[in-house]
Write a protein that binds this DNA or RNA. Structure first.
Lengths: 341, 341
DNA sequence: CTGAAAGCGCTAACAA
DNA sequence: TTGTTAGCGCTTTCAG
């Protein structure tokens, strides 16, 4: 057994081991150009025997091409972004492109840092959540010269392309459905995140719709941190104690909605007669609840898919002065069992 | 407004714009070596004005140092790995190191592909879930010459360092507690994944413990795909129809356990008297359920933290012939309200 | 404190 | 079909 030197192997090692020039070895390993079957064999054999792993750093520098797509999202721990990622991965998995994710925790400074970090690897494209970014971030995105797709939200001015839904419209639609169903004493429960712009926009659309129906939000409550399911419970209790005559609660996400639903079922509240409920996102989790919560799906998977497709198309055209795309998807309302029609 | 050339900026551009040599610009941008305050000012100003973003590809190639840590995990869509990631991120966030994740979907071939891909970027370390890998993967890890930490599981032979819990012991402990509590007609519900080695090991430990108490598993059922909560419901119904005299169900994860719990509560089954329940993982979600499910926490956050610390320490020592670490954490059993004592 | 030269490991472009 | 040459943009090293 040879003493394994700890130096990583290089093309040169494979070249020497196979008696083929570095250039040809490189060709074989990338399936580029014509190489005779015999040489190809020799090279592949030597590479495998040595356990050679190409150095992408050097390759990227030389070819000025990096097959990475930067994906910048606020969080991975709720149910929404993992599904967006799934959409992205599915689309990219049989291509040369590879997603790399960065997490911002809903903090603009962190977004800026992460973006800078990722751009310094010169990716082939950027997929980034939301339309609200710091001036510096926006400047970096513009200056990068690579395709940028902002996702989730279409209410605002994109840097380049955008794929999402209008959260304002989503909130409005839900407000209209609730008012039309005859509910009048309506509360809103959500996250205490001034930086969650999409939740904010849904709330705005929601109150607008209610206002148009002559209804004012009867109560509201916000939380931060902790188990969303538990928070949904607590907040529901709190708000009902404060405003006992509520007949509807709109939750800014399904998880707290599920918590509220479980709480109310325990209390024996008649749903959707005495009290109606709705959430947002259309998460799979809801399937297992005793009652199906009314919700609106956010087209998460589809958004990921479309965004990835845009990057992919751009990275291939290369030249064509492609104009920015703008894709607005339409979320569908599910009444479930908690919103009477 | 200048016509923005689309070529990314280089050190040279900053050098020319500031009248300082490339070398000194590089020093300023990396805070390396002594540079006069005046020069530093000039450089920073020019860099900011131009919107220069350093090219890490070139930097990494020249310095033979990449501040990335490859994190390879099976999935991001259950509740377990996001928390491991949180532990890793927290530890790394104020260091020079940055995690980059790759997903394997529990498929060895995909793990091999992802690993190869990541190693080709020459990261400073690898954190990889599980101890079971293909021969090729294991060979790559060994040949890479970089620190490797296998996480989650300690029942097996690590390539290098390992941080986790013994899932076999976890299953055994739960089995012992259940037997000691007097339950006798016990079922196991889990995932249909022959490749989820940790779930398998828990099951093995579990049946062993029961055997020692003279008990055989009365029934079992496995699922794959779909909403875990809903599956928990269905499977519970199925297994109770088949074996009505069960007095305990052990679920291989909390999510299906929660589904089962909700189902049984609806049916009005007396818990934990008539029927006991337990899950695994200690997920936060359980906080919001009507009843606290018995479970065992898997030390997810702590595992991430420790693993990252090992990589960090190694990447700093550099030289010292550090021996592999082996850290076995001890999960704690929570009886909740569904396992009588 | 600052700069000049050399080269990291690979690939584009051209030559044979 | 194969090989040679010249960098990619940065950092290391060594000399001022």
């Amino acid at each position: 057994m040879n003493k394994p030197s700890n130096r990583p192997l290089t093309l040169r090692d494979v070249s020497e081991a196979s008696g083929v020039s570095e250039m040809t070895v490189s060709r074989v390993l990338r399936n580029r150009g014509d190489v005779s079957a015999a040489t190809r064999q020799k090279v592949l054999q030597a590479a495998k025997r040595l356990g050679y792993v190409p150095n992408k750093i050097a390759g990227a520098l030389a070819s000025q091409r990096v097959n990475l797509v930067a994906v910048i999202i606020p969080s991975m721990s709720n149910m929404v972004f993992p599904e967006v990622m799934t959409g992205i991965s599915r689309t990219l998995e049989d291509t040369e492109l590879q997603p790399v994710v960065g997490i911002t925790d809903y903090l603009p400074e962190k977004e800026e840092k992460v973006l800078y970090e990722m751009l310094s690897w010169r990716p082939s494209g950027v997929i980034i959540a939301g339309l609200e970014h710091s001036d510096a971030s926006r400047a970096m995105l513009k200056a990068s010269g690579i395709p940028v797709v902002e996702i989730m939200d279409t209410d605002g001015q994109p840097v380049d392309s955008v794929v999402g839904i209008s959260h304002r419209t989503a909130g409005r639609k839900m407000g209209e459905a609730i008012a039309a169903a005859g509910y009048r004493r309506i509360a809103f429960l959500g996250t205490k995140m001034p930086l969650d712009h999409r939740a904010r926009k849904r709330f705005e659309g929601f109150t607008q719709a209610l206002a148009k129906a002559g209804i004012e939000v009867a109560d509201q409550e916000f939380y931060s941190g902790g188990s969303a399911l538990a928070k949904g419970r607590e907040m529901t209790e709190t708000v009902l104690k404060r405003t006992p005559d509520l007949d509807f609660i709109y939750y800014s996400n399904d998880m707290i909605g599920a918590g509220g639903l479980l709480y109310l079922l325990e209390k024996g509240v008649r749903i959707p007669g005495k009290m109606g409920l709705a959430g947002f996102n259309g998460v799979e989790l809801l399937q297992g609840l005793p009652m199906r919560l009314a919700t609106m799906d956010a087209c998460r998977f589809e958004i990921g898919r479309k965004a990835a497709e845009i990057i992919l198309a751009r990275s291939r055209e290369d030249s064509g002065d492609t104009s920015p795309e703008r894709i607005e998807l339409t979320p569908t309302l599910s009444r479930g069992d908690t919103l009477r029609s």
